Simulated scan of single mutants.
Amino acid sequence: MKATAKAHPIQGLVKYHGMRDEELRLPYHDSISVCTAPSHTRTTAAFDPSLEEDVYEIDGEAVEGRGAERIRAVVDHVRELAGVDHRVRFVSENSFRTNIGFGSSSSGFAAAAMALVEAAGLDMTRPEISTVARRGSSSAARAVTGAFSHLRTGLNDEDCRSERIETGLEDDLRVVAGMVPSYKETEAAHEEAAESHMFESRMAHIHGQIAEMRDALRAGDFERTFELAEHDSLSLAATTMTGPAGWVYWQPQTIEIFNAVRELRTEEDVPVYFSVDTGASVYVNTTADHVDRVEEVVADCGVETRRWEVGGPARVLDEDAALF
């Protein structure tokens, strides 16, 4: 009863903010994202009757406190679905730096759900597995189905699950990641989302934005898709910054990258748009023809860069890929 899985993190395009149910992690509204590769999380999970308690390890360190609680929520749900009560050994590794705004919780819980479901011997589709991953992180649901995916809101697992959106943008999209190291705390921002006076304004337009994003993706319209993503990033920031804690994630280099992207777009006619989640690091979205120039400009802002493409769905790996 052991399995290993791999999943790619997501870039939010129309981002969810806040949860109507924190235990089941049911978001207030729909969300759409794209997975970024080759960045990934690899996780091995085993149900072991010889263990007296669960063992969780991420990047070589034991997981305790709130992190362990979130993993346990996924583990317990799989135990319930499979009708087993064995303890679990869980080991996970990330190929990219975490907690700087690049979706490590999405790939982490997607890989966890995929590995746990396989180890438990459950026969589930990816949309069904997305409801398992969602219990750890709502964004992880979209990392399960991969590429461009849409998580629908709802009050149960039948409604609140992820589905993949087919689009012609998968092959041409390139993402230059501008890594601005600044620790961020996403969960706390979600908890106070509805207390911002901007939250109702966001809720009023988000459904139309979801419809526009789906339409742009199905049409393969790069400019419209990533212009919408850029505006959504600003809308999200307005909401987080006006909550009780006044979360301001951006750093000076974040703004510098924003300005550099806009200059490339207006002065050199490069198809390029910025996007940020709840963090200081920046996704810079462009096409394969322009990625060299875009990465050069982002690097000139004094940040470390990574070049990513569209990542596929979470998947089970061969036995020789196991972490233990």
Rank of each mutant, 00 (worst) to 15 (best):
A140C: 09
F96Y: 08
H290I: 00
G103L: 06
Q251K: 12
G60P: 07
R202E: 07
M19P: 14
P252I: 01
D30K: 10
D277Q: 04
E69Y: 04
I129D: 03
D30R: 11
V316R: 06
R89N: 01
A5N: 15
V117E: 00
K6G: 12
E52L: 15
D76H: 05
V74T: 13
M1Q: 15
A280Y: 03
V84I: 08
H8G: 12
R134N: 11
A7M: 14
D159R: 14
T36R: 10
G178W: 00
P181Y: 04
R66D: 07
L122E: 00
S106T: 10
H231M: 09
G65Y: 04
E319A: 09
L122M: 01
A189V: 11
R97H: 05
T186Y: 10
Q251Y: 03
R89F: 01
R126Y: 09
D172C: 05
K2I: 15
R161C: 12
S149R: 09
V310C: 08
W247R: 14
Y16R: 14
M19V: 11
L236I: 11
A193D: 15
H205F: 14
T240K: 09
R79W: 06
D277S: 02
K15A: 09
A3E: 08
A211T: 14
N99S: 10
G311S: 07
R265W: 01
D318I: 00
H231S: 07
D30G: 14
R174H: 06
S31P: 06
E295D: 04
H77R: 11
R152A: 13
R97D: 12
S235R: 08
W250M: 06
A245L: 11
P9H: 13
I32F: 10
A193Q: 14
F274M: 05
Q11T: 12
A189H: 12
L116G: 01
G220W: 13
G220A: 07
S162W: 02
L217C: 09
P9N: 15
D76I: 00
A219P: 03
R25K: 15
G312F: 07
A82D: 00
V74K: 12
M241Q: 12
C35K: 14
D123E: 09
E319S: 09
E166R: 02
A299T: 06
E52H: 12
M203W: 01
D159C: 13
A211P: 04
M179A: 02
N259E: 07
V132D: 08
M241T: 05
H150A: 05
S138K: 09
R262E: 10
H231Y: 13
I129P: 03
F90H: 05
S138D: 15
R66N: 05
R315H: 07
G208L: 06
R202V: 03
V34Q: 15
E191F: 00
T36H: 13
S50Y: 14
R265A: 14
D123R: 02
I206T: 10
Y273I: 02
I32T: 11
P27L: 01
S275L: 05
A177F: 04
V144P: 12
A73S: 11
E304G: 00
V298Q: 00
Y183Q: 08
P127H: 07
L317H: 07
S201L: 10
I165W: 10
D172W: 08
F90V: 08
S130Q: 11
L317F: 03
